[in-house]
């Protein structure tokens, strides 16, 4: 009765252990784990595949983008919902990190921390990352949010049931429930503008050209040139979302 236990000799144990280790090492070398930094395009598709770049070095935190976005897309002024907003990161000399975003930056920023205490400070505009492997699209139970053939993550207003799953799923906090429409809302890269050949409203009004909109397949285009000439990073690359929102000069403190 019972399970027959075998007691391997030391030689056998070492043999199988080293074989297992060998397989593991070979697998690792053969297919190393890569955090997805540059999303790979869907194969076989044609037409534009849009992405977005933000140059943190150029952003002066004027908040005109957040303001224009609200005007263009009928985002309610209050309560404080945003499709795009700006955060000011301030790292003090003692190493503590202060993040603030009063009214999303629409009314500007006032520096409250005395300058001599500041180690460094910068503005980070945030918006939908238009991920290629969006967590929000994956959790939608009815197919009301989707990755369009142009690589824009869109919402089907008339089909959304307002279940808020996607609001929870977005690792970047870019979705909210529209208080009047009672369905989810977020950045659409101004799909109604870009289809007519215009720039998104935030890009249109940015005074310092800190925001770059473009086609990732257009190798001569402004976005690809921006990616080529700057050291760009995406937010939370370890989550493997395939984000297509690229930041130049992104500090590690930004989450």
């Amino acid at each position: 009765m019972g399970i027959k236990k075998s007691r391997p000799s030391r030689r056998e144990f070492l043999k199988s252990a080293s074989a297992l280790t060998g397989v593991a090492v070979a697998t690792f070398i053969g297919a190393p784990f890569n955090g997805v930094v540059i999303a790979s395009e869907p194969a076989g598709a044609k037409g534009p595949w849009y992405g977005y770049g933000i140059d943190i070095e150029k952003c002066i935190g004027c908040g005109r983008c957040a303001n224009a976005c609200k005007n263009e897309n009928n985002v309610p002024q209050k309560p404080y919902y945003f499709r795009t907003w700006i955060e000011q990161y301030t790292i003090k000399n003692d190493g503590s990190i202060h993040i603030e975003s009063p009214n999303g930056g629409v009314d500007g920023f006032e520096q409250k921390i005395p300058e001599e205490e500041i180690f460094k400070s910068f503005f980070v505009p945030k918006m939908c990352n238009h991920c290629h492997k969006s967590p929000c699209v994956q959790v939608c139970p009815v197919g009301a949010t989707y990755d369009s053939p142009e690589g824009v993550v869109l919402i089907d207003d008339s089909y959304c049931i307002g279940c808020r799953y996607c609001v929870q799923a977005c690792p970047y906090g870019c979705r909210y429930i529209h208080p009047e429409k009672k369905v989810v809302d977020k950045c659409s890269l101004c799909y109604h503008r870009i289809k007519k050949g215009m720039n998104p409203a935030c890009v249109e009004v940015c005074p310092t050209n800190a925001r770059i909109f473009g086609d990732l397949r257009d190798k001569e285009g402004p976005l690809v040139e921006f990616l080529r000439t700057h050291t760009c990073q995406v937010l939370k690359p370890h989550l493997n979302t395939g984000s297509k929102l690229y930041y130049n000069a992104l500090s590690a403190e930004v989450r």
Binding site: E72, Y146, D147, L154, Y159, S188
Partner: peptide, 19 residues
Amino acid sequence: LGHYRANSLEDNELFDIHY
């Protein structure tokens, strides 16, 4: 086109331009 209403793309195109 995928697990969504393809007509929704047109709906999204029809929003008003303000800028």
